[in-house]
């Protein structure tokens, strides 16, 4: 789970992919999660942090997180895993 190294993320939640010219905006919690991913935290660490900071349960967070990561992958912001590259 790693953002591509050239992706620029600002504190305001603005994401710019310099390879494609595409830009995206994140809501505040999306920006916080991206920052955690950037810091190198894994899923369980991010989950613990979100549950501590916000009122949510594991199932809701897992669903929303997977949806978010899916969108990041679809938009080419994540490095592909070795398995995904083979596929």
């Amino acid at each position: 789970m790693k953002l591509k190294p050239n992706i620029a993320v600002s504190e305001s939640g603005f994401v710019f992919n310099p390879a494609t010219g595409e830009s995206f905006t994140l809501n505040p919690i999306g920006a916080e999660i991206i920052a955690k991913i950037h810091e190198g935290l894994d899923y369980s660490e991010i989950s613990e942090w979100v549950k501590k900071e916000y009122t949510t349960d594991e199932a809701t967070f897992e669903r929303d997180f997977n949806d978010f990561v899916g969108q990041l992958k679809i938009n080419g912001l994540f490095e592909k895993s070795k398995n995904e590259e083979k596929a």
Partner: peptide, 14 residues
Amino acid sequence: TDKGKAWGGITVDD
């Protein structure tokens, strides 16, 4: 534009 002309653009690193 509807003529296919860029009316806004951004430099990219590819």
